[in-house]
Design a binder for these strands. Structure first.
Lengths: 235, 235
DNA sequence: CATAGCAATTTTATCGATAAAATATTGACT
DNA sequence: AGTCAATATTTTATCGATAAAATTGCTATG
């Protein structure tokens, strides 16, 4: 993933204790490679190819791909292997819509149960986000991994007190999916982003529930439109 | 799972074409065994044990367990194997709460986009459910697999037009989780069930959105309380 | 020229064996 | 007795080889 740290915000599918197994390490690397677009949508994932690329035997590879297929990032065809999940306008829309629904609930619930610790964490997350540059201007404009990490952290922090780990996991999965589409539109340098988070943050701190959920959803909708437009331009 | 047919309602994690791979077959069987309580919560799943039980080598077994751990039905401990996910009052509550949230959205959306085909399918599902016996009276009272299948079908049909496959999948996963708790309370012969679906069905057909979502949520809440009580009695 | 059947090739899925890690056991020492 | 360390045992995780299935290419036939 763009962020050096794997899949942002501590993936709870790989929490546990001690040092990871290679199956888990490979799982993370493949996931990051797909989300960051280094493994193209639709690409056939021949076992030998993947095996070679990540320097592991077939068993851990299959294990990793099996897990990814449960998350919808990889598609499994019985008896004929795996491939990177394709992308489509329809899916982009579905992901966005579902994300708006779920995060609306999560934010409502969080704002109904605010705690000092939650608020502190949110303040910190917002502060860090606001101090990080949106893009890198190296050669050609590209996403800034650090910003992506803070961005994910902010959205995670926003809904952290919703009271359901399940819901938080679904939101995280949807965030990962969205990220993949956003990366595709990266060269277009989608605007906004920098300015949209402040009002969301402020509404949350002010406990203005209706305003907060409204802003959050339109934040996602706007991003969707930008990406959508970019995809249409390609085709 | 109680229903002879695996995990009710066509599991979309195992859709695809042709005949299943053993990894997939084992995945289904383990899942069913866990949900039906034949593999007890918390049980250590030693590879050799599982391997022997299902007559397959370690590779497909690990693949199956990996998939199940993505669904939260199995827990993976890095470098120290797998176990059946434990159960707890807290989790029961979390599952139920989350389910109420998500199905409320799904039902609202479905009722906002009703189609004749959707309605037909719902009518059929309800009809079949209403004609099936809730329990089997063999020796000791037990769940009726056929009823469980119709029950799952009915709830699936109810929200089938929500417009998001992702949301439907989350709802299905939550339904599976709930089922496991319900099985535990089966000997207590939880009442209701038979009578609660009719008003939900009627409200849906009448497009009475508020009433429908209200009834649906209380349906889940009531079930939760029954199971909760049963769990408390055991401890 | 299209197509059905067959053989050769590639690729997947599974097995069984080994290496690596965790757990249990023993015995020395305080 | 209780703790700790060293060793033995169990169990997990990974590898490499094989079997099974799909794909490709070829040939014969309508």
């Amino acid at each position: 993933m763009a962020a050096g740290a794997s899949t942002l915000v501590r993936n709870e599918t790989v929490p546990d204790s001690s040092r990871a197994t290679t199956a888990t390490a490979v799982y993370q690397r493949i996931k990051d490679d797909i989300l960051d677009g280094r493994l193209a949508p639709g690409l056939k994932l021949r076992i030998e190819f993947v095996s070679e690329r990540y320097g592991a035997g077939s068993s851990p590879i299959r294990e990793a791909l099996s897990r990814l297929s449960s998350e919808g990032i990889v598609i499994r065809h019985e008896q004929r292997g795996f491939c990177v999940a394709p992308i489509s306008l329809d899916e982009l829309r579905e992901v966005t819509t579902t994300r708006c629904w779920l995060e609306t609930i999560a934010l409502r619930e969080t704002l109904a149960n605010p705690t000092p610790q939650w608020e502190d964490a949110l303040v910190i997350a917002y502060h860090r986000l606001s101090r990080t540059k949106r893009f890198l201007d190296d050669v050609e404009p590209s996403l800034n991994p650090a910003w992506e990490e803070q961005h994910a952290n902010f959205h995670e922090a926003l809904i952290a007190n919703c009271g359901s780990n399940l819901l938080r996991r679904y939101c995280r999965d949807l965030r990962d999916q969205s990220y993949r589409y956003r990366v595709l539109a990266a060269p277009a340098r989608p605007p906004g982003g920098e300015i949209e988070h402040q009002p969301i943050f402020e509404a949350a701190i002010a406990r203005d529930v209706e305003r907060a959920v409204q802003l959050l959803s339109s934040h996602y909708r706007i991003t969707q439109r930008v990406v959508e437009q970019h995809l249409l331009n390609l085709a």
